Amino acid sequence: MENQDGPALSEVRDPAGFIESMRRLKQQSGLTYRELEERAAQVGDVLPRSTLADVLRRTTLPPPNLLAAFVRACGHDQHTGTWLSTRRQIAAGLDSLPMDERGPAPSAAVVSEPRTEVIEQTIRASPHRTKRSAFIAGAALGILLTGGLVWWLMDGEDGQNTPASRTPTGGWVTIRSASIPDLCLTDGRDRSGGYSSAVAVQLPCAQAPVPRTYLEPMGEGLHRIQWHHPVEGKGCLTVMSSGAGKGLIEPRENCAQGTLFRLRPTTAGGPEGFQLRPSTGTLCIGLTDDGTTEGAAAREEPCTNSPDQRFLVRASP
């Protein structure tokens, strides 16, 4: 198989040449990063545009599942096996080199060089299944990240939530529905179909081990909510202000532009918890379907005392 204006993929021998071939394939497709992400989502693949852009700027091999999703999104599904085979051969060649000749290590946002066939067997799995498998491959990264954990008294010794007036100071957390504590905010899709990229939804906590949520104190009672994924890297939750996803919450790679949230303790008219209020404006974060169903999306809406606007913020080991 050949790329336009470039050598046959079988002639590529190093990561830099491999990434250059990926760039050519994207150029041939004529698709933007957003369009590639959307096409991947249509067949159940996960291809975050920010992560793909980062991969194509570097000279290190991409993860197999991201590569497969990229090739399929470009319309070359029949050549996916060839791309994976070539990547595997280049990776094997790097393993035979001395450490000082292997080139720069990949960033923490891209987990490269998985060593088991299990990873490649997940390339056609659903988004959440793929992420769970990628999480296994990136377990070491998660262990390292826990070194900065900041704890506070949110959960008593008996496992019950302590008074909501104890505002969290920061650290690894889960953000749960106060009405249905078994449901956590995590990444998913807007069920209305109006917006195809990943957004914040509530799903069973046991089924959503990644991304991990980190609450970053920003001063003056404000927090930035980070998602850490072993493959997609770090993203900061951002309330979208325009377009098809207006009001929904999307993880963005550029945390400097992420939304700052104020966690306001509330007990009036319902269970204890916090209202999540974007620092700009007077609105709150609530859940569609009154927060009573799995997959309900989080979105900006007028503040009320309704249960769907109450969240538990619990320390996570």
Rank of each mutant, 00 (worst) to 15 (best):
G6S: 14
D14E: 14
A16M: 06
E20D: 10
R23C: 03
L25C: 09
S29Q: 03
Y33L: 05
E35R: 14
L36W: 01
L36I: 03
A41F: 06
S50F: 08
T60G: 02
L61E: 09
L66M: 14
A68R: 12
A69W: 11
Q78P: 02
L84E: 13
S85Y: 12
T86C: 04
D100C: 07
D100E: 10
E101W: 08
A105V: 14
P127Y: 02
S133N: 10
G142S: 11
I143V: 14
G147I: 12
G148M: 11
L149C: 11
R166C: 08
V173I: 15
T174F: 05
I175G: 03
S179L: 13
I180Y: 09
D182T: 15
D182W: 10
D187F: 09
D187Y: 05
D187N: 10
D190N: 13
S192W: 02
A198E: 13
L203G: 02
T213Q: 08
L222F: 08
I225N: 03
H229E: 09
C236K: 00
A244N: 11
K246D: 07
G247E: 06
L248A: 08
E253V: 00
N254P: 02
T259Y: 01
P265V: 08
P278M: 05
T280R: 12
C284N: 07
G286I: 02
T288P: 00
D290R: 12
T292I: 08
A296Y: 03
R299P: 00
E301N: 03
P307E: 11
D308P: 04
Q309S: 04
F311S: 06
